[in-house]
Design a protein around this nucleic acid. Sequence first.
DNA 1: TAGATTGTTAATCGATTAACAATC
DNA 2: TAGATTGTTAATCGATTAACAATC
Lengths: 212, 212
Amino acid sequence: MPLNQEKLPEKTVERLSQYRRTLLNYFKSGKLNIFSHELAKMLHLTSVQVRRDIMLIGYSGSQRKGYDVKELINKIGSIIDTKEGQNVAIIGMGSLGGAITRYFKGKRPKLNIVAAFDIDRQKFDKIISGIPCYSMEKLNTVIKKKNITLAIITMPPDNVTETAKKLVKSGIKGIVNYTSVPLNVSPNAYLEEYDMITSLEKAAYFAKTSAK
Amino acid sequence: MPLNQEKLPEKTVERLSQYRRTLLNYFKSGKLNIFSHELAKMLHLTSVQVRRDIMLIGYSGSQRKGYDVKELINKIGSIIDTKEGQNVAIIGMGSLGGAITRYFKGKRPKLNIVAAFDIDRQKFDKIISGIPCYSMEKLNTVIKKKNITLAIITMPPDNVTETAKKLVKSGIKGIVNYTSVPLNVSPNAYLEEYDMITSLEKAAYFAKTSAK
DNA sequence: TAGATTGTTAATCGATTAACAATC
DNA sequence: TAGATTGTTAATCGATTAACAATC
């Protein structure tokens, strides 16, 4: 990423992630070029939006062939990923933590889940879902030693606020929070909150109103 | 919900779900009333936004005591839930499907997970994570028989598009899609898409830029 | 060239916030 | 009453889309 690049809008970053995912599949099927309207259609967006997002990251296509798939994948990678990759910790290795870990396995080489933390003694210093699991007390030590910058919180709600504070203190720069406890870690870290119940309730509300 | 009520903005519905969750806890701790600025603070929002959202659903507080917690909880319930509740199916009872099922257990009495579907014979006609699991072939029959209106898709990406079509055909009105396959079910159903990789990649991007 | 596409500015749309009257 | 709060309109902000020049 050029040093003088402004921070991109959240929505654009979200779509860049989707573009790359789609392009990786597209590339696998042997296609080398893609038009903005093709990419747009696959993601149910407009072609203008695709072109504008791509413009924002400073990549250009050609009018004849559209975008070079491989180059665009790499460009998006240079925006989202760091060169060396970032290490990720799972906070709370319960069934959700395990499911997420397995879901990620091998999907993004620049995002590596390298440690999990739990309060259950049974899990300490064991490999669970392929990841070494530590006591919560080792949070700070392990995060620093393994150079972990991202955390996914999937623990029960009880001590989430305190744990998030510890994470930020230990140097975590980005948190994905799957618990129902609202956090506030700004300005030291970026926070992405996601509550599965809220998602289903949104669907419930619109399902109800559309049924009219 | 009043018959003539306009559809609420997505963002408002999202926050209403969060308000209720927060208020349920607040009520448990014995508080009967709450001011907009108190609720706002708990969710890291502004009090104006809280008041505006509450205005949109047609509920009023008092200047002296703020909002009646119990009444507001019920009012939000009348917006989001149906009187009889809605039934939910899990499509793909793998580790993520199981984790979500367990996460929901007992949390929302008006949203009941009543069936799961999978392609794995081993799981057919068994109770998994507390839910009866059926063959994908029974999708249409079971959805109609059990009057299921919402579906959570957690299956592998292969046949997601076709499965979503079948769901809508069977009468599903709302879908939460946890797979990486973008769907398009409008205008027959409401769709909520969520990709865990995109979430982590957003965090990765902003973690990277804030580290500067 | 004609047609299709990209790149980009300006207009529009939607959501949030500021301002403030009304009320307890 | 004075002070704090609600309810609501108008202004602002940010994101999407329309329009169109440039280019292959």
